[in-house]
Amino acid sequence: MQIFTNVNGQPLDQEAYLPLFETLARHDLPIWVHPTRKPAVADYQNEKRSKYDIWWALGWPYETSVFMTRVVFWGLFDRFPNIKIITHHMGGLVPYLEGRIGHGLDSLGTRTDEEEDIRARERLQKRPYDYFRMFYADTALFGSVAATECGLAFFGADKVLFATDFPFDPQGGRLFVKETIQVIRYMTCSPEDRQKIFEENAQKLLKLEEGSCKDLCVRVRV
């Protein structure tokens, strides 16, 4: 099932959405999370819109990261330790801000005295950092080797799936597929990890027969 990072501007860390997560966790089915943010969400308070596609280029990774943080501190992984959530575009900003969500969020509650924040940190059974690494992520990064390697180092080879954002590229799909295949083939990882990303992880998560992913571009945007 695919969901978005918000529902009409509302967060998903609400009791109304708990049955959705509970059902998918019980059936061991993955959840794809795709970011959504509109140009009308301005970047500055004195403006009416987000300019220069900032709402998309920077806003969507931000939305993904916000979703991840909200469900972490909601305690979703403590409720459902085996839930499988795949974040589009390699987990948004999270892998690249590892230090901030690691040691930085260990200090939640020291920068402000908000009771809600302090209670959220105290009720978690593990470090916030450990929950972020429980997410899965895909390789739809438009052909960036450095970003893909960063995400792979953060999530690990068992939690990264091949994806290209097909057909949303300047060539109607051909460009991102070709570029992403090249990234996976030539980035720093073992042949075994490369096979996991191309095929094996999707087979396990989607409960597909062995070999059914060969020569297919497994993508999470549907």
Results as ranks from 00 to 15, higher is better:
P39D: 01
H27W: 01
R79E: 14
P61D: 09
P39A: 00
D28A: 05
I54E: 15
Y62N: 12
I31C: 09
A40V: 14
R70S: 08
P35A: 07
F67Y: 11
S65L: 04
W74S: 06
D78H: 04
T64F: 03
W55D: 04
D28H: 09
K84M: 00
R70G: 07
R79W: 04
P30A: 01
V72W: 07
K38S: 14
K84W: 00
G59L: 02
A25Q: 15
K48A: 03
Y52Q: 14
F80C: 10
H34Q: 14
H34L: 14
R79H: 12
F80G: 07
T36H: 15
D53H: 11
T36P: 02
P61W: 04
H34F: 12
R26D: 13
I54P: 14
R79G: 03
W60A: 07
I54V: 12
E63I: 03
I54T: 12
I83R: 09
D43Q: 10
S50P: 12
Y62Q: 14
P61Q: 11
E47Q: 06
A40M: 11
R26N: 11
H34P: 15
P61R: 07
W60S: 10
V41W: 09
H34W: 09
K48S: 08
A40R: 13
A57L: 14
R49T: 07
S50K: 05
V72Y: 04
W55E: 07
K48G: 08
L58Y: 14
Q45F: 03
A25M: 11
V66K: 12
E47R: 06
T36V: 15
A25K: 07
W55S: 06
L76I: 02
F77D: 10
M68R: 06
Q45S: 05
L76H: 07
L58W: 13
Y52L: 10
